[in-house]
């Protein structure tokens, strides 16, 4: 009924932190070496339980060495409603920023995934439940617009409790805004692949995420519009034990596939290559030109060639609006 967070703030599947002594899986309770869990992309080596991961760790897992360049990092959240509940919105934001080291619940930029160039947007559930406010909506819009104008595919990794209540109606409007952003991508004919990670609910599944060309989820991820609590309270219906799981959604026909995290990178690259395979000869040439250059933003056009030259000179980008994460940076 509502498009917003109803998931408890308590995180029941936190990722394994760096270092640390003993760890045991929250699902199968098998102890494991934390380093082995991290090396297994934060998936339990014994039972395959997928732990939640933040945006930076996700990016590090997906992109090639040095293959991510953040954009739009200077977008800042405002408090348009001067919203106060038990805390003020600014206080909640500062806490989320301190906790995650991020400025907002999404990180977006250009990326290379298994040698395929794309625009990549990754949400972070740790930042106010991955809730979608104005900055998340604007970054998604810009990511879509860049994908459309540069002829690059868009990959969005979505995890969210829904709309950000503290921005009131403006957060609801982000559903319409991001939906229109998908139309921008569709009109340009560039691929859009969405990955739904645990949990992905409310306004995000009821807008851009489920409109992707290909929509996959991680094993065990909970995906729904209205949550179990609201359903139980409103309808008194008894929920099936596996309600909302990725596997049940797959069986119901709402997903293209359930993809294990360890296979996600290669799957994504495959999807993007296949979706780009139907292009005109010109597009195929452009793609070849891109694949010859391991790093940088190449296209067949002169503008893109110029961009490459500039990029090659300073391969990790520079400037006050852009930051670069290398896997080293993120794992540190």
């Amino acid at each position: 009924m509502s498009v917003t967070v109803e998931i408890g703030r308590r995180d029941d599947r936190p990722p394994v932190p760096p270092g640390g002594a003993g760890w045991s899986c929250p699902k199968c309770h098998q102890p494991a070496d934390p380093a082995a869990v991290r090396a297994n992309l934060q998936v339990c080596p014994a039972c395959g339980y997928h732990l939640r991961i933040g945006a930076r760790e996700r990016i590090a897992q997906l992109v090639d060495q040095g293959g991510f360049r953040e954009r739009w990092a200077a977008l800042k959240t405002l408090d348009p409603l001067e919203f106060t509940d038990l805390e003020t919105y600014p206080e909640r934001l500062r806490e989320a920023q301190a906790k995650t080291g991020l400025t907002e619940a999404i990180v977006a930029g250009t990326a290379t995934i298994a040698s395929v160039q794309c625009v990549l947007a990754v949400m972070d559930f740790g930042f106010m439940g991955g809730s979608m406010g104005s900055v998340v909506g604007e970054k998604l819009w810009r990511a879509a617009e860049m994908a459309a104008t540069e002829g690059l595919p868009l990959v969005a990794v979505c995890t969210s409790g829904g709309a950000r209540m503290q921005e009131g109606i403006l957060s609801l409007m982000q559903m319409a805004k991001t939906t229109c952003a998908v139309d921008v991508i569709n009109e340009a004919g560039v691929p859009f692949v969405a990955v739904l990670a645990d949990p992905c609910t409310g306004g995000v599944v009821a807008s851009f995420a489920t409109l992707a060309d290909i929509c996959v989820a991680e094993p065990g991820a909970l995906l729904y519009f209205s949550g179990p609590r609201v359903i139980a309270e409103t309808t008194k219906e008894e929920l099936p034990a596996d309600f909302g799981t990725a596997e049940r959604n797959l069986a119901l026909g709402h997903l293209d596939a359930v993809v294990a995290r360890t296979e996600l990178r290669d799957k994504l690259a495959n999807y993007l290559r296949l979706l780009e395979g139907g292009g005109t000869p010109e597009r195929i040439r452009a793609r070849r030109a891109r694949s010859r250059s391991p790093r940088g933003l190449v296209d067949a056009t002169a503008r893109r060639a110029k961009a490459l030259a500039a990029h090659a000179r300073r391969p990790f980008g520079r400037g006050d609006r852009e930051a670069v994460y290398t896997p080293q940076d993120i794992e540190a």
């Binding site: 977008l75 800042k76 900055v135 604007e138 921005e167 409007m173 805004k177």
Partner: peptide, 10 residues
């Protein structure tokens, strides 16, 4: 709908 939202760009 694109314009709806509040943010600043520092």
């Amino acid at each position: 709908f694109r314009k709806l939202g509040a943010f600043s760009e520092g």
